[in-house]
Write a protein that binds this DNA or RNA. Structure first.
Lengths: 206, 206
DNA sequence: ACCTGAACACCGTTCAAGT
DNA sequence: ACCTGAACACCGTTCAAGT
């Protein structure tokens, strides 16, 4: 798993294959099949390894003062771990992570919400919504050879070059759509969701 | 593009390749390269074709009464189009869709928000957050041979079989996490975001 | 008991050679 | 001008054969 993570970190998802991994481990592809059932399990285990980092990075933190703080911290830890391993992003789109570390992260987040008095059903819906947001936010970033800011600048130029008669709103919003920093955009979108959950909580959380 | 969409609809993303497409079109792969630059452009064009369906399905609808209604309608049209072509889901994770139909859908959604008095910056942030949510919500669904409900039932059994001492919150929330219908879950998560945007709008939308 | 070369059935992409 | 067979450099996965 360590070798697989390193390989993806260094060369990207596309160059990662059973064969390149076997070469790095100085063994053969057939030997890898003695440890995992196939490519799919390999990817699941790599994802779970990253979630292990998320789990570890939370150790020793002071307990959160509010549920919003708790939720924001959880999401930011996940966001930060993926920032350290941007090439792993593409692995998250396909499945609900249910490896040991995935379970532990989900358990911790839901527990935090319940501790702050959330009804179980609201905690569950809040959790899944937040999880969907963070996946959706991070998924497009892993486009090959898109180092982020450069892509945003290109997108901005593309929007600004559109015919303002046909696309008035897009042209007007070009800056707002593209020049907000990655981290700020993440936090601002997150705040919408947290405020919406707050509204539901105030209503009684049914 | 029609052949490519059909092929993916019928056989899934995995079985879709230059070779299978060429076979269906009764031509050779090299001929396809006379019309598109490669696999990536092909995927972008297929995505844009689906967004064309989204655009068309909105024609002739009555104008929305509130901005929440407008936003919900836009997102539901997108959601419905993907429900008709679940196998196309996997194509959405990788890039911001900027084909002609992608541009038109974005333009229409942002325009609606501006018409209801949104400041440009809030409209842009609302749009990107909603887009990220819908992508993140739909992305995991396209797992191969996962027909949805069956997978949810399996996930529920998996959660319920966990050690309640180690995963108390996950076990307690197992039902809430897995038995809500796909559509309801989508709408409930969406409502969090809409309420959060409402809060920002009431604050003045800065 | 553990490992692996070689094979099988695939990929995306290119290009010299045909019509 | 348009099309394509065949090639190139790859895949994931399997298994008979070796140590």
């Amino acid at each position: 798993m360590a070798a697989a993570c390193e390989l993806i970190d260094q060369t990207g998802t596309d160059a990662f294959s059973m064969r390149t991994l076997a070469r790095r481990l100085e063994t053969s592809t057939a030997t890898i099949y003695r440890h995992v059932t196939g490519m799919e399990e390999l990817r699941i285990l790599v994802v779970d390894r990253l979630l292990g980092e998320v789990l570890a990075s939370a150790a020793g933190r002071p307990p959160p003062g509010t549920w919003q703080e708790a939720a924001r911290t959880e999401l930011l830890l996940f966001h930060d771990a993926l920032s350290r391993h941007p090439n792993l992003l593409g692995l998250f789109a396909s499945e609900v992570p249910i490896g040991p570390n995935g379970l532990a992260v989900r358990e911790r987040t839901i527990t935090r919400l319940l501790e702050f008095g959330f009804p179980v059903s609201l905690a569950a819906r809040a959790y899944t919504t937040l999880a969907h947001y963070v996946i959706g936010f991070l998924a497009p970033q892993h486009a090959p050879d898109a180092p982020g800011p450069r892509q945003a600048a290109a997108l901005r130029r593309y929007y600004l070059a559109l015919d303002p008669a046909e696309y008035p709103s897009t042209v007007a919003a070009a800056d707002a759509l593209t020049t907000v920093s990655h981290d700020d955009e993440f936090l601002e979108g997150l705040q919408f969701i947290l405020d919406g959950i707050d509204t539901a909580l105030a209503r009684g959380g049914d």
